[in-house]
């Protein structure tokens, strides 16, 4: 059920990215999609009542049973995905700024030199 909500959020982001006319809102739509996927990944790794998968000196090695801790792999994936989305977000925002300098507007219906 929660996974379906993630997909709903994903679709909201997609709607925002494809339908809105303002460049900044399109960028925000893509960011919402990214967060939807990140939440999905975190939820896949989550375990109710689980502990943080960090070893600390009193317990030490060896690992306790893996069933007791939250799956750490999706968290690493999300961290990587956030870094990547940071890079592409910075590029998108800079392209938006340059476009605004050229055209004087964020409205994509007025930014139409390419046709056909």
């Amino acid at each position: 059920m929660l996974y379906a909500l993630c997909f709903l959020l994903f679709m909201i982001g997609l709607y925002c990215a494809l339908v809105k006319k303002n460049m900044v809102r399109i960028v925000l739509g893509i960011v919402i999609m990214e967060y939807a996927v990140n939440i999905l990944l975190i939820m896949i790794g989550f375990r109710i009542g689980g502990e943080a998968p960090i070893l600390s000196p009193p317990q030490g090695l060896p690992l306790k049973t893996s069933l007791q801790s939250v799956d750490p792999l999706p968290q690493a994936l999300v961290l990587t995905a956030i870094v990547i989305s940071l890079g592409s977000l910075a590029l998108m925002v800079s392209i938006c700024i340059r476009t605004y300098q050229r055209y004087g507007t964020f409205d994509i219906t007025q930014i139409r030199r390419l046709r056909g």
Binding site: A90, V93, S94, I97, R98, Y100, Q101, R102
Partner: peptide, 15 residues
């Protein structure tokens, strides 16, 4: 660098 580059571009000014 991202912060610096984005903050030094002012919208409205010529490129």
């Amino acid at each position: 660098m991202v912060f610096l580059v984005l903050s030094t571009f002012r919208p409205g000014e010529p490129a």
